[in-house]
Structure formats: structure tokens, C-alpha cells
């Protein structure tokens, strides 16, 4: 049952939970920016948690179902319509052949996820169906979706009528605390620089995509030093090194960038900390202008937060 793309929205790609083992050649994990929402959408329609779904940023697509099926929308808060009539999100919906799914303006959050029973059946590239834009691989023909594309769907009857309980649906705010583990090259920051990073709020700029989220608002000061051989002369330069996914780099000390699931895998800018894995979804649902505070936690607190986050995922998967 192919799904036809009538309007693609601003940036819609196909994502599952990503690929592993190719970061050393510059191919990042990719996968849904908000993993919890992607898993929820899949579980609602009766898929396994890791099937490929649509991920749309800032603006939903308009899709037409060519055969009967089951669909669910999760993620950012946005009005959902079937044939122009309001329909609920975080619930699985039966659709008939010819039905059209569309969206209104997002009211909170940045990305919606659309799962279809059977999963989006695009080829597996390097172990995943996820689109990685910079490398032009995965997803549908290695690119974002365009009007007229016809996306094949796997065979599955699906489960309409499921709803994720209210208290298990994340609410997206314009003011967030993002937990980070300081480290990496944070010794390059002066005391004032560190204070500017963690004591003052930042604002997410409009440069916020699957690769990275760029923030503005303060300037970071570095400890002066004679630069090591090979690093380059700016105090924010290091000898080029691998970047952790979620790490925060600060080119020229002005605009921190959080690398997300399509991270550039390495480079020569000092990183001063890393977003904990449990808060990557939260960063991913931030829309431009979101007031953000970086709150330092220890590695053990990060591991504890991850256990709680994974418990929430498990609870979701065990709903049905």
C-alpha cells in the first residue's frame, strides 16, 4: 500500500532508529531525532519499535493513502486532519483508500512522526532505513521527500483505536533545561567562560536541523594559551578529533552547537560538554527561540537519567 506525497512540508525524511558502526568513516547514527515519539508512533499502529517512519520538521506533509491502512501521528503538538476533519494525535487511526492526512500549524515542538502499519519499506543501507542527508544515503532515494513520491509500505493489518495515555505524552515547552556532562575540552574555558555556558540562558537560533542545534546569547571566554602544534590559531581550535554525538562545540566562542543524530563526526572546534542521551529528544523538539539552560550533571546522574528514560520507552512498548 504505497503512500503518495502530495506536499512534502519543509523537510520530511524517512527515519528508523539509526545505524551503528560507521561513525569512524564519518557516517553518523542518524535515526529519528525524537526517538521516544518515533517508537510511540510505531507501537500505536502495531509495528515493532524500530520500523521506519516519516519525520517532518516545523511543518507537516500532506499524504494520500492508496489503500486502507492504519496511521498514527506523534511528536510536536500540531492539528492533524484526515480529509480536512480534525483527528487526534498519539492515537492510531484507520484510513481508507484515498484518505488524505494533513497538518495545521505546529503549536509546540519541532518535529512530528508519522507511522504507518507495516512500516515505510525503503531499502536498508548500511543496516538502517534512515536518511542521512549529507551522505545522500538511506530514506527514499537518499534524499528528503518531494511531491509526487510514492513510498512503499510493508504488509501489516495494523491496530486502529490505540491511544497513548495523556501522562505518557511529552509536553513541549519554550523554556527547557538540558542536562549536559561537562568534559571533553572544557578545560579550555576560563571561569567566566564556564559560567557563561551554564549560568546564563541561551536561545536556540534558526540554525537547528538534524546535524546540529546552534544557540546564541552569550560569549564564552577561553583560557589563553600557546596553541598546540596542528590545532590552528583560534583559541577555540583543537587538533581535529572525533566529536561525540550530542557534544557541544563553540566555534570562535560565540555560538554553541549541539551535534544531533546526523552529527558531523569530527573536526577542529573545542567541545565543552555533551548532552546526556536522555535529553537528546528534548533538544530535538526545541523550536527556534527556545530559551535553554545547560545544566551540568555527573556521568552517574547521566546514567541514572538514561535508566529512567529507557524505563519510559519500555513502558511504552509494553502498553500493548
Amino acid at each position: 500500500m504505497p503512500v503518495e506525497i502530495i506536499e512534502p512540508g519543509l523537510a520530511t525524511s524517512i527515519q528508523d532508529l539509526g545505524r551503528q558502526g560507521f561513525y569512524n568513516v564519518g557516517i553518523p547514527p542518524s535515526g529519528a531525532v525524537d526517538r521516544y515519539a518515533a517508537i510511540a508512533a510505531n507501537i500505536l499502529v502495531g509495528n515493532g519499535p524500530g520500523e521506519a517512519v516519516f519525520e517532518s520538521t516545523y511543518m507537516g506533509p500532506k499524504l494520500c493513502f492508496t489503500e486502507p491502512g492504519v496511521v498514527a501521528v506523534t511528536g510536536a503538538q500540531a492539528p492533524v486532519f484526515i480529509n480536512g476533519t480534525a483527528a487526534p494525535s498519539w492515537e492510531s487511526l484507520q484510513v481508507a483508500a484515498g484518505d488524505v492526512l494533513s497538518f495545521g500549524i505546529f503549536t509546540a515542538g519541532a518535529r512530528v512522526y508519522i507511522a504507518v502499519a507495516g512500516g515505510l519499506n525503503v531499502p536498508i543501507v548500511l543496516g538502517s532505513r534512515s536518511h542521512y542527508a549529507l551522505g545522500a544515503i538511506g530514506g527514499f532515494e537518499g534524499r528528503n521527500l518531494l511531491a509526487g513520491d510514492s513510498i512503499p509500505i510493508g504488509q501489516l493489518a495494523g491496530t486502529p483505536g490505540r491511544a497513548v495515555p495523556e501522562d505518557m505524552r511529552p509536553v513541549h515547552s519554550r523554556e527547557v533545561d538540558v542536562r549536559i556532562v561537562l568534559g571533553l575540552y572544557d578545560f579550555r574555558l576560563s571561569e567566566n567562560g564556564l559560567s557563561a555556558l551554564i549560568d546564563k540562558p541561551w536561545q536556540l537560533t534558526t540554525v537547528a536541523d538534524r546535524i546540529g542545534f546552534r544557540y546564541a546569547g552569550n560569549t564564552l571566554e577561553w583560557v589563553p594559551r600557546e596553541q598546540p602544534f596542528g590545532a590552528g590559531s583560534d583559541p577555540s581550535n583543537i587538533t581535529d578529533a572525533p566529536y561525540p554525538v550530542g557534544s557541544i562545540q563553540v566555534p570562535a566562542g560565540t555560538e554553541p552547537i549541539i551535534l544531533h543524530r546526523d552529527a558531523v563526526s569530527g573536526g577542529g572546534y573545542a567541545q565543552v560538554g555533551t548532552v546526556i542521551s536522555a535529553d537528546m529528544d528534548l533538544v530535538g523538539q526545541s523550536s527556534p527561540g527556545t530559551k535553554t539552560k545547560f545544566r551540568p550533571v555527573s556521568i552517574d546522574e547521566a546514567l541514572d537519567a538514561r535508566r529512567k528514560y529507557m524505563d519510559r520507552q519500555r513502558k511504552l512498548i509494553q502498553l500493548w
Binding site: G183, L184, P228, A231, T239, I299, A302
Partner: peptide, 18 residues
Amino acid sequence: YTWGADEHLVVQLSESMS
């Protein structure tokens, strides 16, 4: 040795290139 949060360990062998 330094943690890249809960999923990464980064080891800097040398600050300068050789």
C-alpha cells in the same frame, strides 16, 4: 580520558599532532 556523556569515551593521546 573524558566522557562524552553516557554514550562516549574520548581519549586524547596528545594535544598536538604527530
